[in-house]
Write a protein that binds this DNA or RNA. Structure first.
Lengths: 146, 146
DNA sequence: GTCTACTTGCAAATGATTTGCAATAAGGGG
DNA sequence: CCCCTTATTGCAAATCATTTGCAAGTAGAC
């Protein structure tokens, strides 16, 4: 998964991609990638901000940029707060999560239903470039005990 | 699907369920159900409010109550605004949507992947009462043409 | 009809995210 | 290595969806 990327790789890739967008390699942008690289689960903008020393608005702006450059992926756990995960260079980030309804523990899920279903749905309704958002919710072992 | 419920049925069910919760049958609560019954797609609190004549806060409070009573179901299309759909008495509301990324046209999707996958994921990680949230996004026929 | 607890309207509070703008810094050119 | 242009940042204020406090209003049991 994405979190295993070597730090230098991030920076190299960041530089390359930023060049393509004619944008600059700044401290905050590098730092956000560092923070995300350290975490194996998606983080909220606020959580990222807590580990940095720049403005929260900058975090939001950078995340948006990194998302457009496909270096981070946004996830939505339905609690009104976006979460972000690092993407590797050849990683399309297609995976899902299993989230505990009580304590918010997150487990990454690699599996997914067959692309078949998506294709069928697209065809059936004449839609193009169909993608999906899928997350699982439940009670983790600890919270079942409690 | 839920939208085919007869109006009187709504009211009867509403009365019954409200009784169970020791709560009152008020104008706004009935009206919200009426509005939802007329629509075949999920509506935002604001959209419901526009068709009524009560406070927005009341709409939010009522929707929350109706959701707890399993009379409406909340959907999240990832745009930061919750949407609500009416549920019939014996309807668990388990269905998904295919949403156009351009014009937000919504199509209801009855199919889903086999419960098998969900079961396997739950077992694999020791989670209980696992459910999922799944929505599809794409370009509708009209927007492909444009 | 009365009474009481549940509800509503209204205004203000919250929380996530965005935006305007002046000050600052990245990086190509000399 | 300095300069200059332009992207970027920090800060404060604005947005947006949703929630909440509170006094006034009203279902519904008696």
């Amino acid at each position: 998964m994405a979190a295993h990327t070597h730090p230098r790789q991030n920076l190299t890739e960041l530089t390359a991609r930023l060049r393509q967008h004619a944008q600059r390699i700044t401290g905050p942008r590098q730092l956000i990638l560092e923070v995300l690289r350290r975490e194996e689960h998606p983080l909220t903008a606020r959580q990222i901000h807590e580990q940095l020393d720049c403005d929260l608005a900058t975090v939001y702006r950078s995340l948006r940029l990194l998302e457009e450059m496909a270096m981070v992926k946004r996830f939505d756990f339905g609690d009104g707060t976006a979460r972000f995960e690092l993407l590797g260079q050849n990683d399309d980030g297609h995976h899902h999560h299993l989230v505990c309804r009580e304590c918010s523990t997150v487990v990454e899920i690699g599996e997914c239903f067959s692309g078949n279903l998506e294709q069928r749905i697209a065809n059936q309704h004449g839609f193009a470039s169909v993608s999906h958002r899928l997350e699982f919710f439940g009670l983790c072992p600890d919270c079942q005990a409690a």
